[in-house]
Design a protein around this nucleic acid. Structure first.
Lengths: 243, 243
DNA sequence: CCAATAGTGTCTTTAAGACATTATCCC
DNA sequence: GGGATAATGTCTTAAAGACACTATTGG
C-alpha cells in the first residue's frame, strides 16, 4: 500500500475541478424567488448565475455550499434547510476546464436583501418564473431545484422551512400556493394540515390582529416533529406530467 | 476572455479526482441483489466494492457510469434503467487524494452471472440485506441506493425495469415484495395495478403453462406509457420512519 | 353594516385494505 | 380429487374535493 501511494501520480489523470452551486429559494410577495448573483469574474463576467464556487481542500461538500452562499450574498442567517440536489459534469459545461458541479438546494424564510460579496458584483432575490438567462447550465439546475422543491412539499413538512418560527395555516397555504403556482381551497387545506400527525403543533397563541382587510385572529402554529407527511398533500395532478 | 483563459492555471487549485460508482440492482430468487466487485488494484485491493472508476475527459457522467459497469462486470446488456443517485465528497474518503464520487443507480432484469473485468478480481450479484463490508463509503452509497429504489417503486413504474419484456401481475408483485421486503396481498395488488392508468398494458397472451404447483395460466402484460403512477402504490407505512 | 378571513360541517367520490369467491391448472 | 394460483367481487374505512355555513375582525 505504501509503495502504491508513493508511486501514485494524481496528474496522470486529466485535471478536473469540483464546484458547488446553490439554488436558494424563498418566498416574497406570494411568489417563489431564487437567489442569483451577477458574476464579478470571468468566465461569464457580468452574467447572472447561481451562487457557487470551487470546493476547498478540507471541507465537506455541504459545508462548501453553505460557505459559498454566505460569501457571495452576505446572508449571515443560515437557511432553514439545505440538501444535495444533483451533479452536473458534462464535458464543455465550463470553458476553463472540466468542471463537475455538485448542486445544493436551500430553503429560507423571507430574508433581507442580499449584498454582493466575494466574486459577485450583485446579489438579488428574483422570481423563479421570470429569471434572466443564467450562465453555464444554471438554468437547468434551477429548473431541477424548483421541481424538487415542489415535489418535497408534497410528502415532507419542508414548507415550514419557508415560514418563520410560528405561522398561521393561511401563511402555510400561501407557501404551498406560491411554490406550486396553484390556488388551493382554504377550508380543505386547513382541515388537511391539521389532520396530518406531527405536521404542525399549536402554540396556544393567535395573531395580534386580524388580517389587513378584516377577519378573525388566526391561531399560530410551529413546525411539528414529523419528518414525512402521512398522508401526503398531493398537488392537483396534471395529466401531462404523468405520461 | 481570451486573456483570462490564457492566464488561467488549473493547477492553482488542489487536485481533485472525480469517479462514478454504480449501485446496480436486480432480483434473483425473490431477493434484491446488488452487483459488487472484488477490487483488483489498490487501494482496498481484495476488498468488495461497488463497480466504478475515474471519469474520462470526453464522456458525460452517465456515460462513465455505464462504461464502468460494463467494463468491470462484463455485462453486455445495458440495464433497463439508470439514473443519478447522489454525490459523496468528504475529505478523506479516499486515501489517495480528494476524490468526489458521483453515484448512479441502475435497475436490471435478472441477468447472467457477471465476469470480472478491468481492475476487478471478481464480480457477483449479492443479496443486499447480507452484503460483506464494502470499501470506501460504499456501504452508505448502497444504503442510499436501496432506499431510493424502494421509494421509486411507489410512484413510478420502474418495477417493470426489473422484469423482462412481458410479465405477469404475480411476477410484478414478487418484484415489489422483494424490493420492499414485505408480503403484499395478491388480490388487492392485482386490482390496484390494473387500476393505475398506463402502468401496464395487456399483450393478449397468457403464460404457456400454469404455475409449477398448479393454477390457471396468467395473462401477460408489458410496461405501459405512464411515467408516474397515479394513484401511487404506497408501502405499508411504518410509524418509525415518519417521525 | 359590509367585506374579508378563520375555522368547521356535510356530502360525494375515490381509493385502500380485509376478506371471500370462482375459475383454471398441475399433480 | 386436492392443492395452488389467477382473477374478480364485496364490504368497510380513510381520505380528497366540492361546497356551505358560522364566527370574528377591520373598515
Amino acid at each position: 500500500m505504501e509503495d502504491f501511494l508513493a508511486g501514485y501520480d494524481p496528474r496522470r489523470y486529466a485535471p478536473v475541478a469540483v464546484t458547488v452551486d446553490v439554488v436558494a429559494l424563498t418566498i416574497r410577495d406570494r411568489r417563489l424567488h431564487v437567489l442569483i448573483v451577477e458574476r464579478g469574474v470571468e468566465p461569464y463576467e457580468g452574467a447572472w448565475a447561481l451562487p457557487g464556487g470551487f470546493i476547498r481542500p478540507d471541507e465537506d461538500l455541504a459545508e462548501a455550499a453553505a460557505r459559498e452562499l454566505a460569501e457571495e450574498t452576505g446572508l449571515d442567517t443560515a437557511p432553514a434547510h439545505i440538501e444535495q440536489l444533483a451533479s452536473y459534469g458534462g464535458p464543455g459545461r465550463d470553458p476553463r476546464m472540466r468542471v463537475v458541479s455538485i448542486s445544493y438546494l436551500a430553503f429560507a424564510p423571507d430574508l433581507p436583501d442580499p449584498r454582493a460579496g466575494t466574486d459577485a458584483a450583485a446579489a438579488v432575490w428574483h422570481p423563479v418564473d421570470d429569471v434572466p438567462r443564467l450562465a453555464f447550465d444554471h438554468q437547468r439546475i434551477l429548473a431541477d431545484g424548483v421541481e424538487r422543491a415542489r415535489s418535497k412539499l408534497e410528502y415532507t413538512p419542508l414548507a415550514t422551512a419557508f415560514a418563520g418560527d410560528t405561522f398561521t395555516i393561511s401563511e402555510l397555504r400561501l407557501i404551498y400556493e406560491s411554490v406550486w403556482g396553484t390556488p388551493l381551497h382554504a377550508g380543505n387545506f386547513h382541515r388537511k394540515v391539521l389532520s396530518v400527525p406531527g405536521f404542525v403543533e399549536g402554540t396556544g397563541e393567535t395573531t395580534q390582529t386580524g388580517g389587513p382587510k378584516g377577519g378573525p385572529r388566526a391561531k399560530l402554529y410551529r413546525a411539528g416533529d414529523a419528518r414525512l407527511l402521512h398522508p401526503a398533500l398531493l398537488r392537483p395532478s396534471r395529466e401531462e406530467e404523468i405520461r
